[in-house]
Simulated assay, not measured.
Amino acid sequence: MRVILLGPPGAGKGTQAAAVKERYRIPHISTGDMLREHVKGGTELGRKAKEFMDGGKLVPDQLIIAMMEDRLSQGDCENGFLLDGFPRTVPQAEALDELLSRMGLQLDAVVLLEVADEVVVQRLSGRRVCRSCGAIYHVSFHPSSKGDLCEACGGDLYQRDDDREDVIRRRLSVYHEQTSPLEAYYDAKGLLRRVNGEGATDAVLRCLEGL
């Protein structure tokens, strides 16, 4: 099973990806994780990427594609993979198509988790994190019984900067601007599958089982 998972921040991609990984025994490949591994390992690609990151610049698509080729060539991808966070734009999707063609691989599906913006705002803006142990709570869905203190260690709970409503809405705006053309791109190829991201945690699994 070779799948791309798309969806806005807060759509639950991590939860859905874990279920797909377990069901199909395929690796969950996150662009962010891949970048961090190369930088931490001091690879040639990682060193080049770090230069851009340290300068506050986006890592060029060609570097990401080179890392992706390296990752997809590893043994655990023989039975498939789940891509999360890539591609984000149509040029990246075209570059990925070229890479997969060179490798003799084809995508099975591109699954889009659809979640209303207001639901995303509610999910993310309500998160609170413990400064001491990192435990995560939610003011509506999983509040601490100790109010503004962590149940586990008594540390202060705080709202991360990227969980502020104004920041979330900006992130959503960028996401929609980039992803709308991507939806059309994969829809034209007959690969796009839309899934309600506000529903059950096995929604993506049920979608893939129908392929």
Results as ranks from 00 to 15, higher is better:
residue 134 G to R: 05
residue 168 I to Y: 00
residue 187 D to Y: 03
residue 184 A to H: 13
residue 172 L to N: 00
residue 133 C to V: 14
residue 209 E to I: 04
residue 200 A to L: 11
residue 198 E to T: 03
residue 162 D to R: 04
residue 187 D to F: 02
residue 209 E to R: 07
residue 187 D to R: 11
residue 207 C to I: 02
residue 162 D to K: 05
residue 194 R to Q: 13
residue 190 G to V: 09
residue 198 E to V: 01
residue 135 A to K: 03
residue 163 D to C: 00
residue 159 Q to V: 11
residue 173 S to V: 03
residue 142 H to K: 15
residue 156 D to H: 12
residue 196 N to E: 07
residue 207 C to K: 00
residue 148 D to S: 14
residue 137 Y to L: 13
residue 159 Q to I: 10
residue 153 C to I: 03
residue 191 L to S: 08
residue 197 G to K: 00
residue 175 Y to T: 02
residue 175 Y to W: 06
residue 208 L to E: 02
residue 210 G to W: 15
residue 200 A to D: 14
residue 163 D to L: 01
residue 169 R to Q: 03
residue 143 P to T: 11
residue 151 E to Q: 14
residue 181 P to L: 11
residue 172 L to Q: 01
residue 141 F to Q: 02
residue 190 G to F: 05
residue 189 K to N: 06
residue 156 D to N: 13
residue 203 A to P: 03
residue 175 Y to M: 02
residue 166 D to H: 11
residue 195 V to M: 08
residue 169 R to H: 04
residue 175 Y to A: 00
residue 190 G to W: 07
residue 185 Y to W: 11
residue 195 V to T: 10
residue 151 E to N: 15
residue 196 N to T: 05
residue 158 Y to A: 08
residue 131 R to V: 06
residue 203 A to N: 10
residue 140 S to G: 09
residue 202 D to C: 12
residue 136 I to A: 10
residue 141 F to H: 05
residue 184 A to S: 15
residue 165 E to F: 09
residue 148 D to K: 15
residue 134 G to K: 04
residue 188 A to H: 12
residue 163 D to N: 02
residue 203 A to C: 11
residue 135 A to D: 08
residue 203 A to W: 03
residue 193 R to V: 15
residue 199 G to P: 07
residue 174 V to W: 10
residue 205 L to A: 01
residue 203 A to K: 04
residue 150 C to P: 04
residue 177 E to G: 01
residue 170 R to L: 10
residue 183 E to K: 13
residue 169 R to P: 00
residue 167 V to M: 01
residue 132 S to G: 10
residue 135 A to V: 04
residue 146 K to I: 10
residue 138 H to K: 06
residue 205 L to F: 01
residue 156 D to E: 15
residue 183 E to R: 11
residue 209 E to T: 04
residue 174 V to E: 15
residue 146 K to G: 12
